[in-house]
Amino acid sequence: MSITRRGFFKAVCATGAVLALGRELQASPSAGKGGIEYRGMLYDSTLCKGCHGCEFDCAEANGLPYPELGQDLPPIRTTSETQRTVVNTYSTSKGEVFVKVQCMHCNEPACVAACLTQAMFKSKAGPVIWREDKCMGCRYCMVSCPFNIPKFEYHSPNPKIIKCDLCYNRLKTGEIPACAANCPNEALFYGTRRQLIKEARRRIVENPTKYVDYLYGEDEAGGTCWLYLSPVKFEEIGMKTTIQKSSYPALTKGFLYSVPTIFVLFPALLLGMHQATKNDHQTKEE
């Protein structure tokens, strides 16, 4: 054998250490790594009149084609490779309710944990953004996102992942997201997550008959930066209620944490077995 046992162990430990580095996952309820408070949006479905204006504002702000809203518009649509947001219509026990759909900007996003190039990226202030120069188009983010948000341009040789980035470029210049800036009914309220939660609570407390006593997004998937108020149970307006109330990336933590351990233990074990059985055979042969 041309490699000494000590040298081998050293190499193995080094590998283990490298693989173990930086493995912690971000975990923070309302603020990111830099201690900056996450920003997000409060969507009050009792105020939304279903004008679909935000769909146009979003398309304009992000260079996407205007949505085609004909007479035969299906009441329920999903976001797509040409639409980062859609507004759906539900007929409920309290009449028609409109629900805006877009990326929830999770506090601990599954898509970010999934991304092997950090193309999906949780920025310090909260928006989860997608970076074209890094993405390799594996679509693991789509597999992992519990809300089915990232969309992929299947018919392009240079496909992009399409999803809401909370108008990251507008935020950088001090503007607020296009949808919130232009909503005529003040259904969208942009602010720090803490403010939003406080405001939502206030509305619920002051109008107990108007709202159900639940703030969607406060705990879903470990908390999201988008928060939803509703006049009816959230099942009725098509919001996913099977979403677990804790972090999705935590589901893979156990596995990922075991990696460095295995990298140190296994080679040692295997080498030990190799030596032990070798002697065994030699003694037998003698």
Binding site: A114, L116, Q118
Partner: peptide, 15 residues
């Protein structure tokens, strides 16, 4: 990218 470090998505199982 994930090999040359642009960037290392170390919290990813796929990585």
């Amino acid at each position: 990218n994930p090999i040359i470090g642009n960037n290392f998505g170390v919290s990813s199982v796929l990585f």
